[in-house]
């Protein structure tokens, strides 16, 4: 299990990186944290002609807060995301989801940009960013463009990014006061990908559910936003009955498949179970926030 030979470049700027991508087109692969890419290369399931290592572009590693938005450079390590005071306070759902990714040694290398660009449908961060209604900045030969996370994922391991584009920034609206957020998942072992996972951001106005956003992972070819469940709760509030209805809506909306770890039926069922648990918990957290 050794990677096949490739040409290696390690640009120091985004422009240089994009230049390399442009030069080599589909034959190039961006190496960010490498925690998904290198296993695939070791297995020779991915054989890039050119590896564009972006780890030396230090300008891409930042977490900062501006104008109601949390901006994370694409090269921000997941370890930094988990430990970031800004993320923990301003978008706690993202920090909670990132803590579920692998183990510490994986999070030391893994980056938020790489996680999103890899687009593993079982990964936790995309689901959280769906609930947070985040967006990403893609920088390519024609400059930068913004893509809503909701529009980013096309299928398993497939995104709207062009092969010449680099995911340079993740932008997350700061969670307003009165919100509770929760990330829950079921996995076979600690650190494994989710069999089903859910990120919930819920804004509470007294006993009213002012706004709720739900993202799920592991239960479809992409992470999914659960809009019907959101509508039920926003319309009718959070009660045991509406929680059950939301869970049914989630079970209906997801599109899981079988694998050796769990059946589609199981994943669908657990998505419903987690919906109730996550919403209940988010409701309580939002209540505490509101006081």
């Amino acid at each position: 299990m050794k990677p096949p030979a490739f040409r290696y470049v390690d640009p120091r700027s985004v422009a240089d990186a994009v230049g390399h991508l442009q030069e080599h087109g589909g034959g190039a692969k961006i190496l960010a944290g490498g925690q998904s890419l290198l296993p695939l290369m070791n297995l020779r399931l991915v054989r890039p002609q050119v590896v564009v290592d972006i780890n030396r572009i230090s300008a891409l590693a930042y977490i900062r807060e501006t104008d109601g938005v949390l901006a994370l450079g694409g090269l921000s390590r997941l370890h930094a995301v988990v430990g970031s005071d800004a993320v923990t306070r301003r978008a706690p759902l993202l920090a909670e989801a990132a803590a579920h990714v692998g183990h510490l040694a994986i999070r030391h290398r893994g980056t938020i940009g790489g996680n999103l660009a890899h687009a593993d449908p079982a990964s936790e961060i995309p689901a959280a960013l769906l609930a947070l209604e985040g967006e990403v900045v893609a920088t390519g030969p024609r400059g930068a463009r913004t893509i809503a996370v909701a529009d980013l994922f096309r299928g398993p391991l497939s995104t709207a990014l062009d092969p010449t584009e680099l995911l340079t920034e993740v932008r997350v609206p700061i969670t307003p006061p009165g919100c509770g957020s929760v990330f829950l998942e079921v996995s076979r072992r600690a650190g494994d990908f989710a069999l089903a996972g859910i990120g919930v951001l819920l804004q509470r106005d007294g006993e009213q559910c002012a706004r709720v956003r739900i993202g799920v992972c592991g239960v479809g070819g992409t992470p999914l936003r659960m809009r019907e469940a959101e509508r039920i709760l926003e319309r009718s509030g959070v009660t045991e009955d509406t929680l059950r209805a939301a869970a049914r809506a989630v079970e209906h909306a997801v599109a899981p498949s079988d694998d050796t770890q769990a059946s589609a039926d199981y994943r669908r069922h657990v998505a419903g179970v987690l919906t109730v648990r996550a919403l209940r918990q988010a409701w309580q957290r939002a209540g505490r926030e509101g006081r």
Binding site: Y8, N55, L104, H108, R109
Partner: peptide
């Protein structure tokens, strides 16, 4: 294969020597 790189644990099978 865990080793410390600049004080942080990493999987040495998921990092290139050049990195």
């Amino acid at each position: 294969c865990t080793v410390l790189v600049d004080g942080q644990s990493v999987r040495a099978c998921l990092m290139l020597a050049v990195q």
